[in-house]
């Protein structure tokens, strides 16, 4: 019995469950109970080493760092190994596709439809009643912004139409108190972008090209993604959207001739050359 073994058996004897176990005598008789006994863990390690290398004096190697048992792939994995390359190329492609798809402005930016303080409907006013967009958004041709109409504009009609309607209560309240109705902004470009409605509307870009069929929206939703690429796509090829200036607010406009032919003709006639310079939009 070497000094090592003696040492261990002495220490093991401190474990209340393993009195009298002699490592040289091999496996202990009774089952292991004291799971959290440090010596117990050492025993397990000793046993593992002894089984793995029965030829060496296991007790000597007990105080060395134990050799980790190597992980071995099961044999069947050999059959799929030739195809691993495929998996390794598909996985990054998958990730790229997913990120492109998920963080595309179409996903993150379009489809925003906040609830509004008044159940105002464009389907009714702009669609059924056929009121021109410029009746309410009356600055659109002269200014950069297409102002949300002030309460007075609603009161033009609602001072004598549906004066008892509960849906119009906030409008009447605003009219009486002078406090504005808190409409929630739908389309919102970042503050570092300059956009100008009049530059587009007076040159023959219809509201529909950028806002979609507003006359079918009970509640306004952002239809386009309003990304820089979206702006540039049209600034490069405005032919796809140009229409005569007198029909800019028409919804569902269908030109009698081919859109590209019409667009190209209008572009030439009116000298329309949208700028691509950074300073046009970032000023």
């Amino acid at each position: 019995m070497g000094a090592e073994t003696r040492n261990l058996s002495l220490r093991l004897s401190l474990c209340p469950y393993w009195h009298g176990w002699d490592p040289t005598a091999g496996e202990p008789q009774s089952p292991l109970i004291a799971e959290d006994c440090g010596l117990h863990r050492r025993y397990l390690r000793w046993r593992r080493v002894r089984i793995a290398r029965p030829d060496r004096d296991s007790l000597n190697s007990m105080n060395e760092r134990p050799h980790k048992e190597q992980f071995r792939f099961p044999r069947w994995t050999n059959t799929i190994r030739p195809h691993l390359g495929l998996g390794l190329t598909v996985a990054p492609l998958y990730l790229i596709a997913l990120i492109y798809y998920a963080f595309n402005p179409t996903t993150t930016m379009s489809g925003y439809q906040p609830p509004q303080p008044v159940e105002y409907s464009h389907t009714l006013h702009a669609g059924e009643l056929g009121i021109d967009c410029r009746y309410c958004h009356f600055t659109v041709e002269n200014a950069a912004t297409a102002a949300i109409p002030p309460t007075e504009v609603c009161m033009n009609c609602h001072a004598s139409i549906l004066t008892e309607s509960t849906k119009l209560l906030p409008v009447r309240e605003s009219h009486n108190s002078g406090m504005p109705i808190k409409w929630v902004r739908v389309h919102d470009l970042p503050d570092f972008v300059y956009f100008n409605h009049s530059a587009h509307v007076t040159r023959g870009i219809g509201c529909e090209s950028c806002h979609g069929r507003i006359d079918h929206m009970d509640q306004v939703a952002q239809e386009q993604r309003l990304s820089m690429r979206w702006c540039l796509d049209c600034h490069r090829e405005p032919e796809n959207h140009l229409r005569p200036v007198d029909v800019v607010t028409t919804m569902g406009y269908a030109p009698a001739e081919d859109q590209i032919a019409l667009g190209s003709r209008l572009r030439l006639e009116n000298q329309i050359n949208p700028s691509l310079d950074c300073s046009t939009c970032h000023r």
């Binding site: 997913l98 179409t106 930016m109 925003y112 439809q113 912004t145 102002a147 503050d191 570092f192």
Partner: peptide, 29 residues
């Protein structure tokens, strides 16, 4: 993602990097 794309949302778009999207200035209205 396809569901997000095809449905309307009442939430503003998620902003991970703020850049200079919201500047301390007042736009019209």
């Amino acid at each position: 993602v396809a569901k997000i794309r095809s449905t309307k949302s009442t939430e503003t778009r998620p902003q991970i990097i703020f850049d200079m999207d919201q500047q301390p200035k007042f736009k019209a209205q």
